[in-house]
């Protein structure tokens, strides 16, 4: 008797290309083709998730634990990016343009400069998180998109209430879009349809299911991701996009903020969330604490079989 595994999947996750090498018209040293999985995470021959490390251009609102872990770097995004690239050896860098969250923001030129400087400081593919305010979105995303033209960036974040500006920049400059919906499989699907109808090709969308912090709703994220993966493998093309998940949000919760051993706590909680997110189907895991990278890398290497080309 052979016991076989027969999940009855009929489809696979769509592939998305992130970053462009010289041969592909960009300046990155590597580009990633993510997605393509035709089974549950770790089962079969799926690709390993990528680890993205988060930096920002204005750390004022970031948790103290990160500011102290990345001290000296937090006010210098290019140096921070270089450190993440060469020392931490993350797969990707996510640049948060947190400066745009300040009131009455209008330093659009600075946005372009920061993006260009970070692109020069690292040759890893880049995810850029722009503004979160419909009034300035158009200008901010236009600048980001333009500054990273041909680099196949990932631009975030599109939401149902404000997706047109991100979509327009992504379409104009050949980037992908992060589509974030509030922890709900149906809303995720709706947003993907909206983006498609706004002209974003399906293979340039990443789903961000929105990451509830561990202990504060992470289970909703976990199940939403499982449902998205399930629907995609069962043939729902509107949900067959790779997922990006940011366990870094766990760092803002009370337990981590108030911890005595704050760095140790940050790493434990971030890694625990990231491992569970990977098992639920995340293709890109975004972490923020430097200490999280190594244990997460080890876990992923143990969970996933050697990659099949």
């Amino acid at each position: 008797m052979t016991i076989s595994y027969s999940p009855g999947w009929t489809a696979s996750i769509r592939e998305v290309v992130i970053g462009a090498t010289a041969a592909e018209g960009g300046t990155r040293r590597i580009s990633y083709r993510i997605g393509g999985e035709s089974d549950l995470p770790c089962i079969g021959s799926g690709r390993k998730p990528l680890i993205a490390f988060e930096i920002c251009d204005d750390p004022a609102l970031w948790p103290d634990v990160i500011r102290s872990a990345c001290t000296k770097l937090v006010d210098n995004p290019p140096a921070w990016a270089a450190y993440v690239d060469t020392t931490l050896q993350a797969d990707l860098i996510r640049l948060n343009l947190t400066s745009t969250r300040r009131r009455n923001f209008d330093a659009y030129d600075a946005v372009s400069k920061t993006v260009i400087a970070v692109l020069q400081a690292t040759s890893l593919p880049l995810i850029i998180e722009g503004s979160a305010d419909a009034d300035i979105d158009s200008e901010v995303f236009q600048r980001c998109g333009e500054a990273g033209e041909k680099e196949k960036l990932v631009l975030g974040t599109a939401e149902a209430a404000r997706y047109r500006s991100v979509a327009a920049a992504a379409i104009a400059y050949g980037h992908s879009v992060i589509a974030q919906s509030p922890i709900d499989v149906n809303l995720a699907k709706q947003l993907n349809i909206l983006l498609r109808e706004a002209g974003v090709p399906d293979d340039r969308i990443l789903i961000d299911p929105y990451t509830g912090a561990l202990g504060y709703g992470f289970e909703y994220t976990y199940s939403t991701m499982e449902r998205i993966r399930f629907a995609a493998l069962k043939g729902d093309g509107d949900l067959a996009m790779p997922m990006i998940c940011a366990p870094s949000d766990t760092l803002t919760i009370k337990e981590v903020r108030a911890a005595v051993h704050s760095h140790e706590t940050a790493v434990s909680w971030e890694v625990a969330t990231a491992v569970a997110a990977a098992l639920a189907g995340a293709t890109i895991l975004v972490v923020r604490h430097p200490g999280s990278l190594a244990p997460l890398r080890t876990a992923i290497d143990s969970l996933w079989k050697e990659e099949v080309a």
């Binding site: 709900d184 149906n186 809303l187 699907k189 709706q190 349809i193 509107d238």
Partner: peptide, 15 residues
């Protein structure tokens, strides 16, 4: 709630 959310789309989330 799931069905309701699916219905908050024109005409429906499952086209």
């Amino acid at each position: 709630m799931d069905e309701y959310t699916r219905g908050t789309f024109l005409p429906h989330t499952d086209l």
